[in-house]
Structures are given as structure tokens and as C-alpha cells.
Amino acid sequence: MVNFKTSRRTGLLLLLSLLCLLTVVQPTYAADPISFCKCVCGQKYRIQALPRDSQHPIFGGASKACVACTKQFCLDSVPEICLGVGTGEGDELTTSCFERDSYKDQFIVYLFLSITFGLLGFAGLQPFVKGLWQRQQQRSYAQMPL
């Protein structure tokens, strides 16, 4: 006969281990956000991905990816952006640098998804677990002789 308490503890331990693994794995994917440079000239704009920097703040260095977002970078990567606007020499060209996602936003989204799927899983498994529990209780009680 299978000990129900032992299998229950094993299942909870496995679930807790999986949850801990997911919380450790996810930040490693989010540790290297992509930086973008937005080049705007008149009504035209272009968003370019900046080259990745090996000296990211998480790995101990200062992020220098946004330093590459200059007017010259925009003119070199997209030379036709300022043609027909003013002089075309980049006088009207403005640049701005941004990262795709912040860590706080990612954390909130993943926390929401984890809680939602956890509650859905609990609601879906609850009738099954109740049925198992009732069958286990019926087997464990023996009828008293009259």
C-alpha cells in the first residue's frame, strides 16, 4: 500500500523545486536586455538595434550601448533618413536610446502569469484530488462487525 502522506510530501517538494528552478532560470534570460536607438529626422524615423555590450551592469561593468546612439550612427546605418528634409546633413536629426524591457515590468508580468496559471491548475486539479482523497479515506476505514 502506498503511503499517501509520503507521496503528497514528495509531490509538494517536487513542485517547490520546480518553482525555485523557474525563479532562478528566468532572470538569466532577462539579464541582457536589448538597447535600441531611435533616429528621427522630420516626419521619418527608424529604430535600430544597438550592438550588445559585454560590459553590462549585471556582469560588473557600465553599460555603454547607448553611447553608440549618435547622429553619426544614424547617418551611417540609415543614410536616406534625412534626404529631402532641410539640408540633409543631419541638422534636424535627433536620437534617443531606450531598452526594450525593464526588469520590474518583466517581473510583474511573469508573477501575474505564474499566479494565474497556478490558480487555474489548482482549480482544474481540485476535483481530481478530492476524489482521490475520498477513495483513500473509504479504503482506510474498515467496517465494524455488528
Rank of each mutant, 00 (worst) to 15 (best):
A62E: 15
L14D: 06
L15T: 06
A62L: 11
H56R: 11
L19T: 03
I47Y: 15
I47T: 09
I34N: 03
T28C: 13
C39N: 00
R52S: 06
Q43E: 15
R52A: 06
Q43W: 10
I58D: 04
D53H: 11
S35W: 01
I58F: 09
F36G: 00
C66G: 15
T28Q: 15
K71L: 12
G60S: 03
L12Y: 13
T28Y: 12
G60Y: 03
A31I: 00
A65P: 02
L16M: 05
C69W: 02
C37S: 04
F59G: 05
L21N: 03
R9K: 15
C37K: 08
I58W: 09
T70L: 06
F73R: 02
V25G: 11
C37D: 03
S54M: 08
S17P: 05
D53I: 04
F73G: 00
K44F: 12
Q48G: 01
L12V: 04
R46F: 01
K64Q: 06
R52Y: 14
P33R: 11
D32S: 14
R8E: 14
L19Q: 09
Q26S: 02
Q48N: 09
P57Y: 13
A68R: 14
S7A: 01
C20I: 09
C20N: 07
P27H: 03
T10H: 12
S35F: 05
L14C: 07
L21M: 04
V2H: 14
A31Q: 12
C66P: 13
P33E: 08
L18W: 06
I34F: 01
F73I: 04
C66F: 09
F4L: 02
A62M: 10
T23Y: 10
R46H: 05
K5Y: 09
S35T: 01
L50D: 02
S7G: 13
I47R: 13
V25A: 05
P27N: 08
K64F: 04
Q72P: 07
S35I: 05
S35A: 10
V40R: 15
K5I: 04
T10F: 11
G11E: 05
T10Q: 14
K5F: 11
R46K: 03
R52C: 00
Y29V: 13
L18T: 08
C66E: 08
Q72H: 10
L18Y: 07
R9D: 11
Q72L: 12
P33A: 04
L21A: 06
A49W: 00
Y45D: 12
A49C: 03
V25E: 15
C69R: 00
T28A: 01
L14E: 06
P51L: 06
A62W: 13
L15W: 08
F59A: 01
T70Q: 01
K71Y: 07
P57L: 14
C41D: 08
K5A: 06
F36T: 01
F4Q: 08
V67A: 05
P33L: 06
T23Q: 09
F73N: 02
G42K: 07
R8V: 05
T10K: 15
D32A: 10
A68P: 00
V25H: 08
Q48E: 09
P57N: 13
K44I: 07
L12M: 06
K5W: 08
L22Q: 15
S17G: 15
S7N: 07
H56T: 08
G60V: 00
Q72N: 13
D53G: 02
A65L: 00
S35H: 07
N3D: 12
I34V: 10
T10N: 14
A31G: 07
